[in-house]
Design a protein around this nucleic acid. Sequence first.
DNA 1: GTGCCTCGAGTTCC
DNA 2: CTCGAGGCAC
Length: 701
Amino acid sequence: MSKTPHPAETLAKARAEHARLGAEIAEHDRRYFQEDAPTVSDAEYDDLRRRYQALEATFPELADAESLSRKVGAAPAEKFAKVRHAVPMLSLGNIFADAEVEEFCARVRRFLGLANDAPLAMTAEPKIDGLSCNIRYEDGGLVQATTRGDGYEGEDVTANIRTIDAIPNRLSGAPKIFEARGEVYMRHADFQALNTRQAEAGKPTFANPRNFTAGSLRQLDPRITASRPLKFFAYAWGEVSAPFATTQFGAIEAMRRFGLPANPLTKLCRSAEEMLAHYHAIEAERANLGYDIDGVVYKVDDLALQQRLGFISRSPRWATAHKFPAERVMTVLEAIQINVGRTGALTPLAKLKPVTVGGVVVSNATLHNEDEIARKDVRVGDTVVVQRAGDVIPQVVGVVLDKRPQPWPDPFVFPQDERGNFICPVCGSAALREIDEKTGEADVVRRCTGHLVCPAQAVEGLKHFASRNAFDIEGFGDKLIELFFKEGLIRTPADIFTLRARDGQGRPPLRDWEGFGETSAKNLFDAIDTRRTIALNRFLFALGVRHVGETNARRLARHYGDWETFRVAARAPDAAQELAAVEGIGPVVAEAVADFFAEPRNEDALDALLKEVTVEPMEAVAAGHPLAGKTIVFTGSLERMTRDEAKAMAERLGAKVSGSISGKTDLVVAGPGAGSKLTKARELGVETIDEEEWLKRSAGV
DNA sequence: GTGCCTCGAGTTCC
DNA sequence: CTCGAGGCAC
């Protein structure tokens, strides 16, 4: 750090900027904490805070007692250490209709290879609407507590969790290492009493118990948390050093014996009928429980079966949440706004008269596409019913026809020119629904065809380019990109990297712009420079080629290894066929990639970009598990697991499962009754193992 | 041809 | 988080 005194002028400027940002942040804090009605996105808010802290880092004299950085509750996200979960905290699949309970049971039976009438015990328990936490005990003592976070990484809230009476600081009789998982929540009565007291004291109040719980746990001062009457129910576990139960129900009972509270309405059910009966019993009791629940969770009782069932992407196959019908609210549809996405997709957005649904103020909801609007016959001025799908995303359920204004407004039509042709509202290019060549059906999305001229697509493309999983340019968010684009500073990705060199040419330098200063301008340029080298997969993703998301970008990168090899393939005359040979890439994706590289303007933009950045080859196929990348064939019957399970297991390890043996096969797992495939495997000299050996190898032994 | 599963794209609010 | 559709196995 430099000890050179800062010129007085610069310091004065920084001080003014610091004060301005501070006032702005304080106002947003007030809106967020007291009114529960923030007016900026989290990203924008974080951006303000980052700029504020960057100033203090450069000018320590600004970080006085008045600094927001020193105030409790001011910078929640920054102050808690991130902790990686030993075992991920995943989410649950949802079901909504009664009939799906039976389907869920059937799915489980099918995967396990059980008969339709085979006994299958499940637990059913209320799904508490609170905050999931992982509480780690070692040698019986509480050592660490973390929030769920994104499921893989949470925040360390140990000091706050310790103040909760319902959570014991010591367990009796638990394994040496025991991570209890459950929900921290607040009772209605406590919430109301406390909220009233908060209001009387002129302190922030909260919209609902869940928000209050979240706010309490994220207090920097544990004494505040201690004054909040939080409760806890344990329902799951993370890392444990020794088995402590063989069934889900037994595990709940064991946790009770350890001293942890568990929900009394947890019940062991023997059939779908019993599960459904318990669901309705809980639903009937909902209003009398004294705390918020949003459904019932079903779990396969036998832990050995849970293990066999495993996970699909991010949720367990052995559990699901049966949600109560979402709260529905009426409001007025004030307008329908057409947004243009990165790929040119025109998506209608309902602008609603703000209304509270499920404890949150909603003013926007997507209408998806034209067909959706037509199906629901939604018209501007209509009173509509709104709910939050999965209690998160606002959704227009339907129209209240009785309340439609007289005379009826016209049905909504997408933007057209004077001759009645559909056009993009931003650039005026034709906006078409592609026709599927095979079925002759029109695509549900209408797309702007001005891919290379449409400003909306260009801006969205730039946002995508700089976004977290692409170039990840810190501090270069949506708002800034829009501003720079509007100012004509950036048109293509390459322009981002020449910003510093062009700064001040023909216009004031960035540091003199409103809202900027010496430091923030420098930080931005530095952030851009740190991204001048990039891995091939990220680079391909950043280009924003249609159908090429993170996964397909990685597939292509893995296959070709480096940029030059890939580019040669993508520009070849038969590029589409060549690309379709890549694992997981089909004709549609291949065609989209080939088209992209056949367009001269894309090529020009790429050449310009490659003058500024270096693309690193993708590291060789991840070493990881010894079976990763191998092609495996299962034949004969398996006794310890079904075919599906074995396949899922192999794929988790990065292996590919094929049905027939060929020269490409690396390994054959043969069970009793294996016939011709086994013979063929021997002929080809492919390694053959039995189920026992397979289990060992897949476990990594 | 059918039926999964996975992927991409677009959206909302904290 | 959800919808639609691409990829692939059956």
